[in-house]
Simulated scan of single mutants.
Amino acid sequence: MNSNYKSLFEPFTFPSGVQVKNRMLMAPMTNSSSLENGEVSEQELLYYRERSGGVGAVITASSHVSPEGKAFVNEIGADRDDLIPSLKKLADTIHAQGSKAILQLFHAGRMTSAELIGGKQPVSASGVAAEREGAVIPRELTEEEILATIKAFGEAARRAIEAGFDGVEIHGANTFLIQQFFSPHSNRRTDRWGGTLDNRMAFSLAVIDSVNQAVAKHAVVPFMVGYRLSPEEKHDPGITMEDTLKLADRLSEQKLDYLHLSVRGFWDGSIRDTADTTSRVVLVHERVGARIPVIGVGGLSSPDDVRTALDSGVPLLSLGHAMIMEPKWVEKVRNGHESDIRTTLPRTAQHELVLPDPLWDMLVNTPGWFPVV
């Protein structure tokens, strides 16, 4: 191995006691390759098997905690006990290659369609449509439904524990339900779940508490709980960096193992103020990194990219597009073969890269998403 990349392979121990063998994780990426009933498909298992082993941990694609929480066709289900055997197959597949397994838990809220959730109206913190073409006005959740959704996150965490995962990641990013409660755009409530910044944080904190209660009750070995967040929203009103830093302060006080930023580029500045070019990942790390580990992400494709990002002080990094195009990215760096890392997506490489049919169709038919050649 090139000695310049030694820092990538230092082990790391999370607050819960779970240890990973290096500083790189596979980022959670939608693949729409599960079965219609929420079970993990054979193609999906092969996809994860091919990409496990090198990274310290694999964070799965998002899994819905309740039926009305779906965002994508054919996504992983964590909303029923009969799905535990399927989840166990996924955890076992990742473990067999030598990586830790983290199940991402989410609820889409208003970022779904009636077609995906049995003809029902999507739900959210308030009856405010997303600012996207064709968005429908969601139904505001009742107090009873909010409490049931919070409980659903805890139940999904229990299923992940019973399936043998090493942790869960609470998906509070990418405009899904948890972010909808935090955002002043989507949350116009006047009860205890909205209004002030503290009230808009309440749903996130309640979900974390529900998950931690499940861990305390059911986990017999160390089990991680992470939280993913998007630092800003473009629209006004929307989440500002000041809001997020205050949220990060509160999250650092919870029993969490990490904060995982969701940004397009690790070094990208503000999406609200183009004059502010400071990395959002670095800002969060500088604010709370001494209290809680931060995972960075975004546009890290070469070993030098990863090393430079680690040099910022951010202790962990997740790889997304790089792991799609090069399943053995970590192994090639470790073995001194970094010059062999693929940086494009050949149209003839689906089977070689072990990419499920639905994911492959998305990759090659979405202009500008991947460098398809």
Rank of each mutant, 00 (worst) to 15 (best):
M1S: 14
N2P: 09
F14S: 00
F14Q: 01
R23L: 04
M24V: 00
T30F: 06
N37P: 05
V58W: 05
A61V: 03
V65A: 05
A101M: 09
L103S: 00
Q104S: 10
A108E: 02
A108N: 08
R110C: 08
I117M: 13
K120F: 03
P122V: 02
P122C: 02
A125V: 08
P138K: 03
E140W: 02
L141A: 12
E143K: 12
E143Y: 09
G154F: 07
A157F: 01
A157G: 09
A163H: 06
D166E: 07
N174K: 11
R188S: 11
T190D: 14
R192D: 11
S204Q: 09
V225C: 06
R228E: 01
S230T: 14
G238W: 05
T244N: 12
E253S: 05
Q254Y: 02
Y258N: 04
L261I: 11
F266R: 08
D273L: 07
T278M: 13
E286T: 12
R287I: 01
A290R: 09
G298Y: 10
S301I: 14
S301Q: 14
G313Y: 01
S318Q: 14
L319A: 01
G320M: 09
W329A: 08
E331G: 14
E331C: 04
V333F: 01
T344W: 04
T348R: 15
A349N: 03
P358Y: 09
L359G: 07
W360H: 12
L363C: 12
T366I: 11
F370Y: 15
V372N: 02
